[in-house]
């Protein structure tokens, strides 16, 4: 029953987030701050992980091709497909659920514990709009992060293939270009856009409705990470079923 109750509260929260908008001059500053915290602040870890995981995907693929009949360009092909279809949109989103999600839950949760949210409400501010809406807007730039993750993942795979001696540059690039379906990129960005909304709202929900003290803020961050990841995996399955089959 508690799950149903939480789902209901989550949708009621969304209704409040989009009602009684905060003054634009305030909102604009908040959005820029959130872009800095959530998007710019995540670029380092996303770039690092993307580059090296792209490299690992290429090496693993190359090492598992023992049959001489399988063309060498398959390394580039497999790297492209893995990175664009799953690694960049889904794997990076799970990492972001840990990094950005925990940050959102703990910052809003701390505001709840220290009565800052009550202070906003007493002043007549719609605290959900003030706190959550700028995060949703900021994270709408998340597909930009995923574009960079795709690019760096493929670059990582390309460099690992060449300098590891697993493939030539020409073979790898041929693999990148062969059987390219542009809709796969559309599919990846549709997923990313939906994930960005989940990344902004589920952690906010767990932070906003938490009760207790500092210990509960930690627990809420963990719960938020678990549920954000679960929802991302489920939505990933549903979108894949809808768009690719």
């Amino acid at each position: 029953m508690i799950y149903l109750e939480n789902i209901g509260r989550y949708f009621l929260m969304l209704k409040s987030v989009f009602s009684k908008m905060t003054k634009w001059s305030m909102l604009r500053n908040l959005i820029f701050k959130e872009i800095d915290d959530l998007i710019v602040g995540s670029m380092g870890i996303v770039c690092f992980i993307s580059f090296f995981v792209g490299g690992v995907v290429a090496i693993q693929t190359a090492l598992n091709i023992s049959n001489p009949l399988i063309p060498k360009y398959l390394v580039g092909f497999a790297t492209r497909q893995s990175v664009i279809l799953e690694f960049a949109p889904t794997f990076i989103s799970i990492i972001m659920a840990g990094k950005v999600g925990s940050f959102i839950t703990s910052s809003i949760g701390t505001m709840r514990v220290t009565e800052q949210i009550d202070a906003l409400e007493v002043m007549g501010v719609n605290s959900l709009n003030y706190l959550v809406f700028p995060k949703i807007v900021a994270l709408s730039l998340y597909p930009f992060v995923i574009t960079i993750a795709m690019f760096l993942g493929i670059i990582g795979g390309w460099l690992a293939s060449i300098y590891g001696g697993f493939s030539t540059s020409a073979d790898f690039v041929q693999g990148l270009q062969i059987d390219f379906i542009p809709f796969h990129v559309t599919y990846a960005f549709v997923k990313t856009f939906v994930f960005s909304f989940i990344l902004a709202t589920i952690p906010s929900f767990y932070g906003y409705y938490m009760k207790g003290g500092a210990l509960e803020v930690g627990k809420a961050s963990t719960t938020s990470f678990v549920w954000t990841s679960v929802v991302i995996i489920l939505i990933n399955y549903i979108i894949t079923q809808l768009l690719l089959t």
Partner: peptide, 28 residues
């Protein structure tokens, strides 16, 4: 907007300076 509240733990916004905290209701 006609109510003022002083919370037990002050409830000042951590990310704002003293001046910004006091200015907040005016800006809003």
């Amino acid at each position: 907007t006609e109510m003022g509240m002083v919370f037990q733990g002050s409830a000042l916004f951590d990310s704002m300076t003293v001046s910004e905290n006091v200015m907040f209701p005016l800006r809003m």
